[in-house]
Amino acid sequence: MEAQASQFMAENPEHAPARRRPAEADSATYDREHRGTVGEVRSEVPRMRCTAVNVHYGDKHAIRDVSLDVGKNEVLAMIGPSGCGKSTFLRCLNRMNDTVVGCRVSGEILLDGKDIMAPDVDVVPLRARVGMVFQKPNPFPKSIFENVAFGPRIHGLAQSQAELEEIVVSSLQKANLWGEVKDRLAHPGTGLSGGQQQRLCIARAIAIQPEVILMDEPCSALDPISTAKIEQLIDELRRNYSICIVTHSMQQAARVSQRTAYFHLGDLIEVGETDRIFVKPQHQLTEDYITGRFG
């Protein structure tokens, strides 16, 4: 492997940094030129519009000048090798990075034309509009009902208990989980299987009727059958929501998304229609990644 690698580097000197794995990506790696983005970053009907977003973790420049749109009713897949910054970028979209000590975000991120980075923006209602599903299913250690009801309750979405129950039921139905849990709503959410837990987390996110749902590798801890169910669900949810999904599985990106963004060491390398990216990538790095030459 090592021999192959050095041979490859000798042949393609411009790719040398790309051969480094993230753990080895020291500050020297980040001194290189910033790479521009290939492809169309803008969407015709944008829900979110990011312009020149930079993220620093302490001294580390984790995201460099990323501009990207999330369209209405589209699934945007973000792919790239580990540590490329796709999760970090995703977490900018609902300002979850605020909770990370030493993390600084700059740039402009518009949600329906309003800058969410403005100092007077309250993150609480923002996160009600931009929901999130995490890599590891993280249901609250409470009942299935309480898991879904928590969001509507704290935001005061339901006027009565009956209304709350209606929201919970419809959210579970939308998350394709209702049939499996309708007889045990009072059971703890942590007692469900991994795939069910993740769908519960999706139900929890859609219970507050967000406009955008961010999904950070939602299927990485799941078996293929659960993954298929979630992918089907994502496709259905697209009708009502914009979805950003970070994934390590290129097949998954190809299956569920309309547009795909390829990140590499903090740069957004290429954006485009999913069909085009996977069939005819324009950037060499994108092609290397999706053909499995590295990553």
Binding site: V124, M132, F140, I154
Partner: peptide, 22 residues
């Protein structure tokens, strides 16, 4: 686990709500 806090913050709980409820 931090995932509990993230989960609560992710559905728009204020930090105090995340702490108090979860």
């Amino acid at each position: 686990p931090p995932s509990i806090r993230e989960g609560a913050l992710g559905v728009g709980a204020s930090p105090m709500q995340a702490v108090m409820y979860h």
